[in-house]
Nucleic acid binder design. Structure first.
Lengths: 350, 350
DNA sequence: ACGATTACTGGAATCGTTACCAGTACTTCC
DNA sequence: GGAAGTACTGGTAACGATTCCAGTAATCGT
């Protein structure tokens, strides 16, 4: 059905070697005839056979927690745009924040890819052993790995970003602030938590432990955390959520509770949202260059694959930006008391 | 560096054939010893070699216009969740709505995948010839192909959805409605346009051609279309946008113009948005099961790959749902006149 | 005119796996 | 006890490309 190099050779009256050389761009005597038969047969070299012989797959793996998270979708777009130029195919896999899935996914990639861009599920769980044994270059994206300082990485300045959020709230006069943190065993979870706390500490503000809710970066946990924060006897005047999905969950909870932002409560999230500007109030956020993170990761990976990378690992850290829109203002005197328990609904978001 | 089946055979004192049989689950005499050496060597069969021999790649291609569009991100998630269960790897590619990119992408997939899920850029441009020649099963997602009725497809009832939108606006009393359509040479573009117009026609409403703006499904075109619609001498009282990105663009334009929805203008869009409920007003939309579209497409593809599909093509059409939230209301007498030109700003969104 | 250089050529081995095809040992049955 | 069946075994040839290694013909330099 599909022509092989042997078919071309036979029809053109040369050896497969000659056809192969023609394909590789070397000059051969019968170039015209060979090219003609290639075209009549509509021959394309079998990539699988090529890969087996050469050990190069012209594919890479992109392993993220969840493509339907707009941040990772943007990353995927960045990765894909560079890899298309390099004529590399991209295997996309979701781990759903699970280390078991991550392990299965990475194992399934061994031998099928020339490199991997990985957003690890947990800092402590290093599932890269098999890839490393197979000499597959890895670039870490957005999250680090405990023992992975020898791997290239593209992060953002999470401590700095979280500090920007804290300072913004502090400067408005907030002292009693709810923190919806990500898991502390992920890089951004830990760093945003620590960065936020450090900035508060530097201003002499100590956060009551009940004001810190540890979520899992998913929407539902932002929703639940917000309900908890607002059910406390002494209310918070502001909330910071450590990623986009938890921000959406938090906003849903506030919406269901009927709490007006920023009149009753100030809110700021990490990661911009496509519609952030169109919400009312427009959402203030810590933004960061998501597509660029993907682009840079792919460039680092390319260098490693081509063996052109410097021997020691490269660590790129991109800056965040505080976008002040309209969801934060000084705490109102009237909002010092707790939200009445009667306003807390039963059920879940959506 | 990485062990081969030969290494295992040598160490276990058997032939490669025997090891291969063990891998395939047949019973062999030295099963225990072979298994032991496999584990000490940490051997995993080379997938590329397997593919070459068997002609099966255990991979599929997913070709969409743009993963960063939340709809396609949801589709990708659905596809990926099924394919993980089937232990298939997914190649993800973006075409950016370009037929040239699509052609390049599809060619690059020949020989590397067992099947393809494709969202074609244009109905008229069939780039599947090479895949078909190579007997690669194809499932069309969300869009059809002119000559592709022999291919399985998973669509939504776009005419019906657009009609729901039209009827909703009509029932509220709107007669002068702006339509931001997608490209007419894509299935959803054409079908939503036609469905919308048909429903209006059935109610005796003829739309002035100047009220129909043909966009390209991208954000910027929704923004520009909205500016044009609102610059008309006789203003529209409602706008329908045919997809999510153009809706966002339109909302940005309305926001920049300072036009209050639904007081001055009603708005309804095709495709739900994660934050639609949190906008003010909450956005009324035509929603549809995006993840499920991906799931069903992957199931159809699986059947084809396993040769279990019925000989003739399967066409699945999912229903849309009108979600009435708060962005539509009867036209206000005061909004009959055109928006003063002075309120139209210069520049672009973002 | 003769060895050296250049410009090609094709045969055969190889990548790592699977599958066909005999072959061997042991059991079973009449 | 011999034929037939069962339960394995391993050698070898593929899959479709690339590459090493000779080999041949033409051109070059002196």
């Amino acid at each position: 059905m599909v022509a092989t190099i042997g078919d071309v050779a036979r029809l053109a009256g040369v050896s497969t070697t000659t056809v192969s050389r023609h394909l590789a761009g070397q000059r051969i005597r019968e170039a015209a005839a060979v090219q003609a038969t290639i075209e009549t047969l509509d021959f394309r070299a079998n990539e699988v056979a090529r890969s087996l012989k050469s050990g190069v797959t012209r594919s890479i793996g992109l392993v993220v927690p969840d493509v339907s998270n707009p941040f990772f979708a943007a990353v995927a777009k960045g990765v894909e745009s560079v890899s298309r130029q390099l004529e590399l195919n991209v295997f996309l896999s979701n781990t759903d924040e699970s280390v078991e899935r991550e392990r299965a996914v990475l194992q399934g990639l061994v031998g099928r890819v020339d490199g991997v861009i990985l957003v690890p599920a947990r800092e402590e769980t290093d599932n890269t052993a098999e890839l490393r044994r197979a000499n597959v270059p890895i670039v870490l994206l957005d999250r680090r790995l405990r023992g992975g300082n020898d791997l290239d990485s593209v992060l953002v300045d999470s401590p700095g970003g979280a500090a920007q959020a804290a300072e913004h709230l502090l400067s408005l006069g907030h002292r009693r602030i709810g923190l919806i943190s990500g898991p502390l065993d992920t890089t951004p979870g830990r760093e945003r938590h620590d960065g936020f706390m450090a900035a508060l500490g530097a201003a002499g503000v100590e956060l009551d432990p009940t004001l810190i809710r540890i979520g899992d970066f998913k929407l539902e946990s932002g929703y639940q955390a917000t309900l908890r924060l607002l059910g406390l006897p002494s209310a918070v005047t502001a909330i910071f959520a450590a990623n986009n999905l938890m921000s959406i969950g938090a906003l849903r909870a506030l919406h269901h509770l009927g709490i007006r932002v920023p009149d009753e409560l100030s809110f700021i999230g990490f990661d911009d949202l496509e519609l952030a500007e169109l919400l009312s109030p427009p959402l203030s956020v810590i933004s960061r260059p998501a597509v660029e993170q993907g682009v840079l990761a792919m460039r680092l990976l390319r260098n490693r694959i081509e063996g052109a990378g410097s021997p020691k690992a490269q660590h790129i850290v991109l800056e965040t930006r505080l976008l002040v829109r309209g969801s934060c203002r000084p705490p109102q005197p009237s909002s010092d008391g707790a939200i009445p328990a009667t306003r807390i609904p039963i059920g879940n978001p959506s």
